[in-house]
Write a protein that binds this DNA or RNA. Sequence first.
DNA 1: TATGTAAATGTAAGCGCTTTAATTTTAAAT
DNA 2: ATTTAAAATTAAAGCGCTTACATTTACATA
Lengths: 339, 339
Amino acid sequence: MAKSTIYDIAKKAGVSIATVSRVMNKSDGIADKTREKVLKVADKLGYHPQAYAQGLARKKKNIIMVVVPVLSNYFFMEVLAGIQDEISNYNYDLNIFNIKNDGATGMFEQVDNIIKRGWADGYIFISTHMRDNQLKQLQKYEMPITLIDEDYPEIDSITVNNEQGIQIAMQYFLDEGYKRIGMISALKSSKPGEQRIEGYKKALKNAGVAVDESLIVAGDSMYRDGFSEQNGYEAMQKLLELPEPPEACFCSSDIQAVGAMKAMTENDFHIPIIGYDDITISNYIGLSTIRQPMYDMGVYATGRLMKRMKEPGLKPKQKVFSPELVLRSSVESIPNKTK
Amino acid sequence: MAKSTIYDIAKKAGVSIATVSRVMNKSDGIADKTREKVLKVADKLGYHPQAYAQGLARKKKNIIMVVVPVLSNYFFMEVLAGIQDEISNYNYDLNIFNIKNDGATGMFEQVDNIIKRGWADGYIFISTHMRDNQLKQLQKYEMPITLIDEDYPEIDSITVNNEQGIQIAMQYFLDEGYKRIGMISALKSSKPGEQRIEGYKKALKNAGVAVDESLIVAGDSMYRDGFSEQNGYEAMQKLLELPEPPEACFCSSDIQAVGAMKAMTENDFHIPIIGYDDITISNYIGLSTIRQPMYDMGVYATGRLMKRMKEPGLKPKQKVFSPELVLRSSVESIPNKTK
DNA sequence: TATGTAAATGTAAGCGCTTTAATTTTAAAT
DNA sequence: ATTTAAAATTAAAGCGCTTACATTTACATA
């Protein structure tokens, strides 16, 4: 079945292409009889408007594009679920574009190209972690953009107050009387990596506790910037090998905490641990965590983008969600053999 | 910055649009001097070819589209990671299209529309579970398609021998001397749901063990067709409430097994359990499982699709991967209080 | 200097659709 | 039977690009 065009339908139905177009677009001013005739032919020929031709002729693509640096990641999955659910309330299709984080081409260049090429009517960028001057550049394309997990004053953005999140976790530990608190970081040079380390130090300082740099560790595998089970596993190994292991541990992500817990089990040495994110699984494995409302962030971001697409003049808005401490069995202390 | 077209560049550079087009496409037969001149202007005006116009003019979009019914799912994530990595070896962009599984519009109608609209040069459908006559329909669009996790003789497909997988797991339990083996299913009416139940029964029959229907259970929450932690949790609750609980348990997916393990912990009643998939986390929580080479499936599917795009005449090929039993601590028996 | 050839560039048609403005048809009003 | 306004339809331009074909230019050869 060679694909048919609007011309084929028009000819076969004995009308002009304009009429066919109108029928397909459900625009009115078409006699019922004509509509039926056209529809019947279109159906028989398996006709459907070509997305690219439509996109060119209209100035609209009816596409929202979400750009993520990596797919296999819980955080993105949850956020995407929110976006997905919310977008189904509008007449837009969702396209996910996965930019390569291979260093060969920078994040920015790729994002820049995507926008320039005009793929969609609006964009959501998740955790692309671009620099301010780069974000500024994007802005001048005058395209509706919403940022998730990063912010820039002139673009709509959705973030979580990370510093506050860490603060809460650390405060809990401090209140419990722990002073030597380990910190499992990820790629230290990544923006979220940096932020969390900073928050950790700040919390300690506020409590008047000296920072012991040796308690801040990351694993060696840097796949996904270190936000992986393996990385957490390696990091905890290191912590436990310390002459004086920490009494408790804060972890930059739940997924790393999963690895860290394994390391503890294997070494038969358990310290209270708190992760970050509250991915679905955490609830099932008893992992305490700082909850980020990932799903809600996706929903909110989508709503905001839609709004901006309607009213481009809107003043940029920075939405900051608050994290929340969720306590589960992982903070119960289990008697350990003394080292 | 109003977006510029090829005409703007041509005018400003004092050449024809054909020349600009040639420069942008790196086609040869362009004097170095001209190229530089054009490039400079293009750069200054922030020009980049419009994807939709290009797609229309050429007949090629340089896009591979992966269609999935749901995103927040480990299986898809892993498969996608494979696709993603493999595709980066070719000059194609990856687009993920997420069809809504809301019953309002059937899977098929959505998939059909996507193909008809001509979004991409090739498609990969993951777990869309369409019926044979529907798949047959798609086929006549003569578009390169590869199926993952479902098969149809006339379309390239990648699957795992599910029956074999269950067989292996059951055999292990039977060899260990268990006779009352529970089966945590998912949505029983789903294609994979059915398959796994069938495999379970077959394995028992082969071993001459009577099937006890009350040992085949699913949870009540049917979000994601029951392939969720919650569903597994509920299912295991049911199993443990049985007058005579099973001695071991096979689980349709790792993610359900995670929930099931929680139920066991809460009830302080442990039986050996084997999941299905081998998602990354399983290794870290000691979950035994039947490994599906998800990543490899993604890689293979992509390679196959590329090949078909080059040689459309290829005879359809059904690739079947073999599953593998991975034993971890979850099959160790832990003494339980007698009920 | 005239001529042939290859390289460089330009012209214009066309990809499949939308949409404005113009035209034709229909039906209501006189 | 006319006139007229409204409804239905069509013609044609244009969306931004590619590309086959035509034309021009540059240069070597006779």
